[in-house]
Structure formats: C-alpha cells, structure tokens
C-alpha cells in the first residue's frame, strides 16, 4: 500500500530528488512486546508520507496509532521492519530537530509563561535568544495568541493551551509535525474552530503532518490521506485519498463528497 504512487500533483511541494519526496518511510514495520503470550502491537505497516502532505491515522482505541507516531519520532523502537525519516534513522532526525510533537494534553510547563513555553524547544536545540523571541512572537500571532505572551498556562482555556502547544512544536521549524489526538480534549465547537485554524497554520508553514485521531470528520476535513488502522494486531487496513479542494472552508463539511467519504470511512471502521 504505497501512497506516493497515486498522489495528486498539488501535494508534491518539492517533487525533486527521491530523498525529499518521502519524509517518512515505513517498511513492514512491526512491534511486538515480549511476554506470555507476546503482544503484537503493530504488524506489517507500510506507509510513506510525501513532503508537505497531511496524513491522518484513524482507528479505534488500542489499534497502535499513537504507538506508530512514537516509532516515527524515535521514542519507541521497532522489532521488525525499517523506519526512515528524511532518508535517515529517526534518531538522526531527532538530532537534526526535524520533529514537532503535539500531545492530547497540551503538556505545557506550568512554571513558564506562554512565550517561555513556546521558546522551550529553541533553548534545547540551541537557538539564540533573539531567534527564539522572533520565532515565538511570529508563531503566537499565527496561532492567534498575540498579546497573551505573559500569561501562565493555568490562565488559559483548553483550546488556547492547545494553540500554545502547536506554536511550541513549530518553534524549531520541524519538517514533520506529529500530532497525537491534539483536539480530543476540547469540546466539539472548539474542535471545529481549531481544525480550521490548524489548516490555516499548516498552509502557512507547510510541514508534513502525521495526525492521530479517532474522529472521522476531523480526519476527512484535515487530510490528504486517511490511513485506517485495525485493532487486530495493529495493521493498516485501508488508505483513503481525500481529494477535496484546498484551501478548505468549513462549509466543505456539508458537501456531498465530504459526506460520501465520511460514510465510507465509517463503514470501514465499523466493519
């Protein structure tokens, strides 16, 4: 199941060398925890993410979608198969600061202000204070939090915290944004708003995104590709292209194409 083969041309931002086309390349990836009996978390996962594309991983709880995200980030090892990130190992990609990670809970440092939180990764990777400040103020206006730089996380709503987390992830200009159910803790209205915002931000930054969710509508609305995973040994059961035009206004959610994709996905997931 290779997705690069039939990828629409508009997604290929940099269709030059082979190295730059696939940002993430998973070949026959498996993860098995030793034990009696051994637990097969993932098996035979093949996926390649083209540069600049938005790919969602969707599936019921326990299908290994969050685990897959951590494998790409080099936080978890694989027991079989290979993982390539920008042509190298995930560890090399970590060292080159290619990853931006957004979690389900915003996971902000409560002792730091909004701005200091956004500057955290810059400190870790050795950006100068000037670079950090420029980057954080640009990103905070991008995520709509200009003027709130000096608030503490405890003074923000759940949705605002998640915006800070997105800004923080983007602060080191990563090529791959890994998002692990980032909007599952906010309410339905906030979620739609944040979806629209995320697309706007992504349109501005043009990172590749791997987005884990269990919300069908969200997956369809955001993605170029929706990757459906099954809880049975953690496999990819279907890879669905979403050929809705970009930029996508939120009205697209009621278009016939959108609804058709949504009901198709629902069928696949319930099956």
């Amino acid at each position: 199941m290779q997705l690069t083969s039939s990828l629409p041309e508009r997604i290929a931002v940099e269709p030059t060398s082979e190295k730059t086309t696939a940002v993430v390349e998973l070949r026959d990836v498996g993860l098995c925890y030793a034990g009696r009996p051994p637990v097969q978390v993932l098996e035979g996962v093949n996926l390649s993410v083209r540069r600049g594309s938005f790919v969602s991983l969707i599936g019921p709880s326990g299908c290994g979608k969050s685990t897959l995200l951590r494998i790409v980030a080099g936080i978890l090892p694989v027991t079989s198969g290979s993982v390539l990130v920008e042509g190298g190992s995930p560890l090399q990609a970590q060292r080159a600061h290619r990853f931006g990670f957004v979690f389900q809970d915003a996971a902000l440092l409560p002792w730091r202000s909004v701005q200091e939180n956004v500057e955290l990764l810059g400190e870790l990777v050795g950006l100068t204070p000037d670079e950090r400040r420029d980057r954080s103020s640009a990103l905070l206006s991008l995520v709509g939090l200009a003027g709130r730089e000096h608030l503490r996380p405890s003074q923000l709503s759940g949705g605002m915290r998640q915006r800070v987390a997105i800004a923080r992830a983007l602060a080191i200009n990563p090529s791959i944004l890994l998002m692990d159910e980032p909007f599952s803790a906010v309410d339905e209205f906030q979620r739609e708003l944040l979806n629209t915002e995320l697309l706007r931000i992504w349109n501005d930054q043009r990172n590749s995104v791997l987005f884990v969710t269990h919300n069908i509508e969200e997956a369809v609305y955001l993605s170029d590709w929706v990757c459906v995973m099954s809880p049975n040994r953690g496999r990819i059961v279907e890879l669905i292209p979403v050929e809705l035009e970009r930029p996508r206004a939120s009205e697209v959610r009621v278009s016939p194409e959108f609804l058709a994709l949504r009901s198709h996905l629902r069928e696949v997931l319930v099956r």
């Binding site: 936080i75 060292r95 600061h97 809970d105 996971a107």
Partner: peptide
C-alpha cells in the same frame, strides 16, 4: 513529570 513532556524532550534528543 508528565510523560508527554519527557517524550517531547526526547523528540529533540535533549
């Protein structure tokens, strides 16, 4: 510490 934050630090090889 929040396990997510440990992962965040790890993801940039801190």
């Amino acid at each position: 510490v929040d396990p997510s934050l440990v992962e965040l630090f790890k993801s940039v090889d801190a």
